[in-house]
Design a protein around this nucleic acid. Structure first.
Length: 487
RNA sequence: GACCCUGUGGUGCAGAGGCCCAGCACGUCACCCUUUCAAGGUGAAGAUCGAGGGUUCGAAUCCCUCCAGGGUCGCCA
């Protein structure tokens, strides 16, 4: 059902996340379909870390991706953590491979060195934008350089990038499993950078080289990649390799149909985990996005999903990630659990010894009876908070307006919380202080507002420790919730 | 702006020329059950299948045009 060509070789699929943030729900979505395709055909599913952007890649992010995917019950046959015959599975450890391949392309004349500075490129972009140019990309200046000269300059150590020499055809036709032939007109096909001046490859090069070397038969990825397919197919052609089958999945959407984003929707898998969604429900829900079982069944296990999986059944409209339906589904799963099983789930999370231990350590000296403990520490066990009149008042320091605080809380989430990959008392403190300074807020005022937002109270254990225990996702959610009540 | 993708009730999907004056699920509303709230059950409202043209005896399903939404135009992935 996948295509004749595909059956000729083993089905090997992969998920290739970039470790630049919190584990994303879209990663899980694409991983699920890749997993199902491989399993359905008795092939392999691999995990590859695409960390060629050394500015933004973070080991903590990588660890969270593994953890979140494992939590969902997805496993891979090859990957950085489990090894495999085609390793290493971390692109940052494959630099020489990319360098060699870039040289191959250079030697074939399929790529060329480009000495244009970032400044020139920025200026060029400005110019094109200002002129409302129809064709936007790189203008090919260095492509016209004499190859011998370029070689000399490169040998002399002049900084440069390697660009792919795209054919100068009027149009190119590529193939997508679900969309069929897709024809691109000449713009949109400029000479992409393959190797950055820091010696690391870009996504385009690394991705194609690795997919080929790792024997990937089907590239199932998000639709945002569709427009770079001409470049990728050109790379396969330039190398003389057989291209895999490409299939682009529709993007998950916000309620307003835009591409799912953290400003409009929780996108971190950690959020759903902390909020108490069951992994099997989450997976089931994700499978409902753009897909349907032949018998229209809506509740099914991973194995049942895999057993009937047919890539051609995915529909192409961008599915809105509807948390209400996810929550309904989750309720169905939760109710199916026995009391013992439910207790087990609670014990794996908010009632674990580890979590309880942290909470008790923070609260014990502030409580006189065991019962008092439950009153005092209740916010450690709740989800979104309801802010009463007193809390709302404490949220807004004298001399500030609700709108002002609201904006600041939201800004704090965006600039202070979201980028913080390591969530500990010291890092939280640093982030909060940095934000206060940048926003011109007296720390005392900001900390009280945050304290109330995050706990619903004015009297709590030390703020940073408390926030560390609550976790990034819950803090984020309550910060946004507080901002919302200030509307 | 250019290029590309998509377009079935508010949302997720079914439907691959007649079985559809469109089916399932979420949500909404009502009723039943029930001390309450849920859950569960039953039912209702809600779609001229984006619009307009074709093709055909017959179109949600095929073709064309338009419109709308989305994505991409980075030494980010």
């Amino acid at each position: 059902m996948v295509s004749c060509r595909a059956l000729a070789r083993p089905v090997r699929t992969r998920i290739a996340p970039s470790p630049t943030g919190d584990p994303h729900v879209g990663t899980a979505y694409v991983a699920l379909f890749n997993y199902a395709l491989a399993r359905r055909h008795g092939g392999q599913f691999l995990l590859r870390i695409e960390d060629t952007d050394r500015q933004r890649s973070h080991p903590a992010s990588e660890a969270m991706i593994f953890d979140a995917l494992h939590w969902l019950g997805l496993s891979w046959d090859e990957g950085p953590d489990v090894g495999g015959p085609h390793g290493p599975y971390r692109q940052s450890e494959r630099s020489t491979i990319y360098r060699e391949h870039a040289e191959t392309l250079l030697a074939k004349g399929a790529a060329y060195a480009c000495f244009c500075t970032a400044e020139r490129l920025a200026a060029l972009r400005e110019e094109q934008k200002a002129a409302k140019a129809a064709v936007m990309g790189y203008d090919g200046l260095c492509r016209r350089l004499d190859p011998a000269d370029a070689k000399t300059r490169r040998a002399a150590g002049e900084p440069c990038v390697i660009r792919l020499a795209m054919p100068e055809a009027d149009s190119v036709t590529v193939h997508d499993l679900l969309r069929g032939d897709v024809r691109f007109e000449r713009p949109q096909m400029d000479d992409q950078v393959l190797m950055k001046s820091d010696g690391f490859p870009t996504y385009h090069l690394a991705n194609v080289v690795d997919d080929h070397l790792m024997g990937i038969s089907h590239v199932v990825r998000a639709e945002e990649w569709l427009s770079s397919l001409p470049k990728h197919e050109q790379l396969y052609r330039a190398f003389g390799w057989e291209a895999p089958v490409f299939c682009h999945l529709p993007l998950l959407r916000n309620a307003d149909k835009s591409k799912i984003s953290k400003r409009k929707n929780p996108v971190s898998l950690n959020h759903y985990r902390r909020a108490g969604y069951l992994p099997e429900a989450m997976l089931n829900f994700l499978a409902l996005m753009s897909y349907s079982m032949p018998d229209e069944r809506e509740e099914f296990s991973l194995d049942e999903f895999v057993a009937q999986f047919d890539l051609t059944r995915v529909s192409l409209g961008g599915p809105v990630f509807d948390i209400e339906k996810l929550t309904w589904l989750n309720g169905r799963y939760l109710r199916r659990l026995s009391t013992e099983e439910t207790i087990g789930r609670l014990r794996a999370g908010v009632l674990s010894d580890a979590y309880l231990g942290q909470v008790v350590a923070l609260c014990r000296e502030r409580v006189d009876t065991l019962e008092g403990f439950f009153d005092y520490a209740s916010f450690f066990f709740q989800g979104a908070l309801a802010y009463d009149a007193a809390a709302r008042e404490a949220l807004v320091p004298k001399g500030r307006t609700a709108a002002d605080v609201r904006k600041s809380l939201l800004a704090l989430v965006e600039t202070g919380v979201d980028p913080l990959l390591e969530w500990r008392p010291d890092t939280v403190e640093a982030a909060l202080k940095a934000f206060a300074e940048g926003a011109g807020w007296p720390v005392k005022e900001l900390f009280m507002a945050v304290r109330v937002a995050v706990t619903g109270r004015t009297a709590t254990p030390p703020l940073f420790e408390t926030m560390a225990v609550l976790g990034k996702e819950l803090c984020r959610r309550r910060l946004r919730g507080a901002a919302e009540t200030l509307r």
